[in-house]
Design a binder for these strands. Structure first.
Length: 562
RNA sequence: UGGGGCGUCGCCAAAUGGUAAGGCAGCGGCCUUUGGAGCCGCCAUUUGCAGGUUCGAAUCCUGCCGCCCCAGCCA
């Protein structure tokens, strides 16, 4: 029986896994997300997280979280903690399968000894510079280390003494004996172990030697029974080494299989830790969780939902092709989600006073407003109305452009959920600036409908001045001007977008937002989606704009001006 | 000809020799108490280029072009 739903096309990785399963090479699927705890997770990592966890889930397998902590000089425990928080927040659960490469140090050491005994690895006394010089170039083969033919016995003895802490960093390394003439550079007798004296966050000072990535990663995968080791594309060249290590250490089949996919980038930003750190150092942004940052912490603070990020990651697909996805795609995902779930409120960003002349000065009343037109179960709330209101400056024009449907002298407009009002007077200061607008309301139109059925094209939002809650609003733009910024060391400043943050204070919110907890996401009608920032105080909320609403008028008028 | 990888619409992406899906963006329109949401329509005679094989090619072959990755005791 044909299925009604058309199956989403299967990406190349899922295809490979399905084939491996069908061929009986493996009988379950185990993947892993293996970050080094040396920084913050960003939207680029999110793809790896989502795909690893989702692929495993789809095939009824599991996904491990493994911290690849083999370089104590770069790693700190708090990074691991924040990574776990981010991954959980994204919605993934590794169950009992939390691992650290450092847990395998003893096993790894044994594997290395085995390699030495079989003549497949040797201790090299060359300095770092000498090793580099012996490596050759992209076009020329390398030359063998003079220690390459050192006997297994001697190498083993030296290796054990390295472990015992008898040598200083840089004095000796353990190298695989593969092929100095290989066109694949990682195969030119790669270093497997080096000496480091920085204390390790988890093992302290018990190990003076640490395995290198290729050795630790392949074997950690094997130890955990990983079936498919997904990684980004710059590791393709290391796959021969990955396979070599597993084979020569004697890992029985089925051995884990490394598969590479193209990285995912975003326009108008950068992912590199170095460049992001520079933004902080330069004082351009506050911290790693600044809402403009592409870090998961920053996106969370800004108000992105886990759903929207997951949809983004799965939506752009999984291919070998590296990609820079348009920011608009991410914004589409968050609008799509927040449109469903975000409660609506009214708030005025750039206030202009509107006086309802025929509304009694001492009077006020509660008007009912729908909380979410997309969700009938969300109910409604009361919004206070009175004679003096705040409206958006952009919603009034003394001399309106074509197709302007908002407040303008002599014209009638609807105050959302309140009354139909007609503009009667414009008050200006000495400089000719509009400081106040007057209007008259039709008492018969309470709620916004005219009993005589007359049509009113424009609807604008408002807040009762007397009841308004003062707030600070933070509007964010992109970090970089260019779609694909290339921040060089010189001219870094030029690449930045000077409008990445605009702070609005005072902005006025309807009073029902009083005391709204940090992290709450909401829509300010006709304006955009916002998230309550943790900088809020009981007296004054601070709102981060996640993303603006689609603004066809804004686009139109911008085009007209151009 | 050092090795490897990638080229399908502005950005993603399907198509696995049978006559170029879809999404985002954009553009037109409808509808609307959010110029929101929703709905409808338009948007690749052609797949980096040039040849070839074939009844038929984005898919196969040949040659070229472009971009990316690799010379850390980082991952």
């Amino acid at each position: 029986m044909p299925d009604e739903t058309t199956a989403a096309p299967e990406d190349f990785i899922r295809q490979i896994i399905r084939e491996d399963l069908a061929a009986g090479k493996i009988d379950r699927v185990v993947t892993r997300f293996p970050p080094e705890p040396n920084g913050h997770l960003h939207i680029g990592h999110a793809t790896a997280i989502c795909q690893n966890f989702l692929v495993a889930k789809e095939f009824g397998g599991r996904c491990h979280l493994r911290f690849d902590d083999t370089n104590p000089a770069a790693e700190e425990a708090h990074f691991a903690d924040s990574m776990m928080e981010d991954i959980r927040w994204l919605g993934f659960d590794w169950g009992d399968h939390l691992y650290y490469t450092s847990d395998y140090f003893e096993k790894l050491f044994e594997f290395a000894c085995g390699l030495i005994r079989e003549g497949n690895a040797f201790i090299c006394d060359l300095s770092s510079e000498e090793i580099a010089a012996h490596r050759g170039t992209l076009k020329e083969p390398g030359t063998a280390s003079p220690f390459r033919e050192r006997s297994p016995e001697e190498s083993l003895d030296l290796f054990q003494r390295m472990r015992a802490g008898e040598f200083a960093p840089g004095e000796r390394v353990l190298r695989a004996k593969i092929d100095m003439a290989s066109s694949v550079l990682p195969m030119r007798d790669p270093i497997l172990y080096r000496i480091q004296d920085t204390p390790h966050p988890r093992t302290g000072k018990t190990w003076p030697i640490y395995p290198m990535y290729d050795f630790a990663h392949s074997l950690s995968d094997a130890i955990e029974g990983i079936t498919h080791s997904l990684c980004s594309h710059e590791f393709v060249d290391r796959r021969p080494l990955y396979d070599w290590i597993l084979e020569h250490v004697g890992i029985p089949a089925p051995r884990p299989r490394q598969i590479e996919f193209g990285r995912v980038g975003l326009t108008h930003t950068v992912m590199s830790k170095r460049h992001l750190a520079r933004l902080i150092d330069a004082g351009i942004i506050r911290d790693w969780d600044d809402p403009r940052m592409p870090t998961l912490a920053g996106m969370r603070r800004r108000g992105y939902t886990p759903e929207s990020i997951r949809n983004f990651c799965t939506g752009v697909g999984l291919t070998r092709q590296p990609k820079t996805v348009d920011l608009a795609r991410l914004e589409f995902e968050i609008r799509e989600h927040l449109n469903e779930v975000a409660p609506r409120f009214m708030g005025v960003l750039r206030p202009l006073k509107l006086i309802v002349e025929n509304y009694p000065e001492d009077q006020s009343e509660d008007l009912s407003a729908v909380n979410n037109p997309q969700d009938p179960t969300a109910g409604s709330r009361n919004v206070p109305f009175s004679r003096e209101l705040w409206i958006e400056r952009d919603d009034f024009a003394e001399d309106p452009p074509k197709k302007f449907h908002r407040l303008t002298p002599g014209k009638e407009v609807r105050l959302r959920y309140a009354y139909l009002v007609t503009c009667t007077e414009v008050v200006k200061d000495a400089n000719g600036e509009v400081v106040e607008v007057h209007c008259r309301y039709d008492p018969e139109t309470r709620g916004g409908d005219a009993p005589d059925g007359r049509k009113v094209r424009g609807t604008i939002h408002w807040v009762s001045a007397r009841h308004a809650l003062r707030a600070e609003l933070r509007l964010y733009g992109t970090l970089f001007r260019d779609e694909e910024p290339n921040p060089r060391d010189e001219g870094f400043e030029d690449a930045l977008d000077p409008d990445s943050l605009e702070t609005l204070d005072p902005a006025w919110l309807e009073p029902s937002l009083m005391g709204v907890p940090a992290g709450t996401r909401l829509q300010l009608e006709r304006v955009g989606y916002f998230c309550v920032d943790r900088d809020s105080t009981p007296e004054q909320p601070v709102l981060d704009r996640v993303v603006g609403l689609r603004d066809t008028w804004g686009k139109l008028s911008k085009r007209a001006k151009a």
